[in-house]
Design a protein around this nucleic acid. Sequence first.
RNA 1: GGGCGAUUGGCUCAGUGGUUAGAGCACUCGGUUCACAUCCGAGGGGUCACUGGUUCGAAUCCAGUAUCGCCCACCA
Length: 909
Amino acid sequence: MSAEQMPKSYDPAAVEADLYRRWEAADFFDPEGAGSRADPSLAPYVIIEPPPNVTGALHLGHAVVISIEDAFIRHARMRRRPTLWLPGKDHASIAAQVVLDRIIAAEGETRASLGRERYLERMWRFVGETAATITDQQRRLGASADWGRERFTMDAVSARAVRTAFKRLYDDGQAYRAEALITWCPGCRTSLSDLEVVPRPEQGTLWTIRYHLLDLDGQPDPGAWIAVATTRPETLLGDTAVAVHPDDARYQGLVGRRARVPFVERDVPIVADAAVDPAFGTGAVKITPAHDHDDYETGRRHDLPMITVLDDAARVVGTGTAYDGLDRFEARRRIAADLEGRGDLEATADHEMLVGHCQRSDDIVEPRLKTQWFIAMEPLAAKALAAVREGRTRILPARFEKVFFDWLEHIRDWNVSRQLWWGHRIPAWYCPDGHVTVSDAEAGPEACAVCGRPPAQLIQDEDIFDTWFSSGLWPFSTLGWPEQTADLARYYPGTVMETGYDILFFWVARMMMLGEWFTDQTPFATVYLHGMVRDPYGQKMSKTKGNSVDPLAVIDELGADTLRFVLLDGTAPGADQRLSRPKLEGARNFGNKLWNATRFVVGARPPEVPGQTPLALPEAFALGPAERWILARCGATIAAVTSAYETFRLGDVTRLLHEAIWSEYCDWYIELAKARLGEGVPAAERAATWRVLAWVLDRYLRLLHPIMPFVTEAAWQRLPHRPGDPELLAVADQPTPDLELAVADPAQAAAVERLLGLVRAVRNVRAEAGLDPGRRLAAELVLPDPAVRAAYEALAEPFARLARLGPVTVRDAATAASGAGADSAPLVAVSGAEEVHLGATVADAGRDRARLERDLAAAQTRLASLEARLADPAFAERAPAAVVERARQHAVEQRDEVERARARLSESA
RNA sequence: GGGCGAUUGGCUCAGUGGUUAGAGCACUCGGUUCACAUCCGAGGGGUCACUGGUUCGAAUCCAGUAUCGCCCACCA
């Protein structure tokens, strides 16, 4: 293939267009697929992905997940591990219902108008459409997931796992049904778990209200009252007590007396309870056990009646007052006004407070009494804690282990009942006598477990499970659990679970707990938590703020490789990152660089290397110093990148490869190699040079493939391959550094480095002196080190070209001392022990002299600091010998440099 | 109220005790060099938030402070 066949400019869209289909057709996303080159004797590498919600389009969070997971799995695949990334979707019951409710509202329907059955039909139709879109988007990002094993949390296998799991928890005594104060969303009309409530600071009002004390006749005394402070006056309709702190002197005499609640005219006791903060408000609190979490506890301690005064829509109900039927906020206003009217509103004050909102609908949540199913979590949490404490699961970054521990150590029972329709219905049935039967059979129980009544008389619980209940089973339910399937045996437990730290509790902890409980194994060895993607100003992205970035728009314009690279570059586990246009363009430019380097290599193939020749490293004797240098660098990069992959440091992978490819391979090696590819070069050398060019590029493409799969695959397709290589880079082997390191000669590599430093020095001098950049300058090189001289002999031509030098002579240090070229005041470039005396008059003596003075001053400063350190006896005594020795060495060199700088300065005077 | 994280050049970030703290972007200057202007070359720019401590030596370890961000928590 020739360079002419490669489009001159890099067009990500064109590059990426068909590659995914080729990969998929090759059938290696399935570890047992036809195209898999996995070694079955190696341990499988299994990625647990957070299945995206069926409701939405792909957002940047998904793109992060896919970029990380795909990098891991592609790397493992290229190490011949059998790799499984089982993709799927989550039915996301509450989120899906919120979305669908909005859609049907636009169609003039409501949940109620459709009814459960038609609503669910509509939902299936809706998710059918969105699921296909999401999968397509994941493919466009390059996700090499095993689509043949794709699963949905609402499919039959998942349903069976849910029933089995619940039945077991019930049989184990961990699942129980109880009436308790739960958190309710009046908008979604369902209960929520604690995690689904988002507290937000809001400006509220603190009202101080008088409850009149009862006199001896049991009548409210107009002149005696106890004042309570509240932010929710409407709940007074459900008050069943007033509480004060037992030690509060102000109220000592009132404890045990009774007060009358306004409007409902209920007489309630004044109780003493240590939970009351005497310093807050009036020090007296109204107690509404059915509508406040604190009051619920207080109510239980004092055996108070619990009176519900709000319905599912959070309207006042059943109080027998004029407020019945009013919305909670309207009732609040009216009650406050009416209290004022009757003279019982003592004070009104602004009050900053935290208000709980529904994570999905944003409605203000309402504590309510409901009969629900709960999971007793402590025994489950203990197992998950043990898994992490014993190191069976490791959390990255490690600091999240503390967060994990803290949450599990203070875990509360999990309310799993949801009053929704879209989800797994709770497999609990109730008989007319109130007996409970939990069944894991698809058809339900055959009889009441207690009294044996036939199924016809049993009524199934109307509620469904919290979405996260089925998500928590994901690592094993997707592999067929509770069946002991072959997949389960082979691919469970997983290797890496990757997700954002924001769902550590929602999902990760629950998978850990349920996994341990049901399988006696931790479901994955490593938890990799990524950070959040923010906008260029560090703000959270959100649709409402309008600062969110659509990953598909980025892919369309700049390519999936670009997006993937940016989302991994410069990132660390758990650390948030900012996404900006310049970063994206930088990544696209990197793809362009790679593309053009490949074009060069492909086009530079000399006739000695026929196109079909397999790729091989040349014999060592055919290598020049530059080849040995780039191979040394290549070997070091392979080792460093491999280590970075294996320790989950993808940010280092991108950094190392960007540096190696751009700043070493492209900036230097390609330039050095050009000279050794020319007409006059012996055929064997020419061939060897090109082989090294192609070899190193091949290594880097392999290393970069997991990060930028498309452009690397496209480039690789144009290079010759090694014997035994597959047709696709995606299943080619990752490199090991042994071949490179075997031929790389560190001494020669170091000599080349020094020459490159000298080129930089010459360029610097030329630029500083303002010399015509195109002008070839005669030069005299001073190369005291024989190794550097030898390297120079081989690289004289590219050296001259890169430094823009004309006729060049070389001297070693001894002869150089005698003085230099034709000019009395030559420009001198210095790099370490090496010098280049340029055969040019100083174009701008003032500027050059300033440079020389600067150099001298810098050298003197360095020398002074070294000498000061060496003069300190403590340093010689306490510092390691190697460090001291190095400092001595540097001091010697520095002294020499100062000398030479002085000499140059006096020459130029 | 607890806990965690961040603080390094204009911006985004590397850098966990050892010479002179790096990169990309931005900036300045210069380039029609036969892979690439999505490029090439050169350059300027940092008291590493602050204070104290440990150490021969601190961006790096310890303590405290400040600012910002996040998580958890039942003050009505």
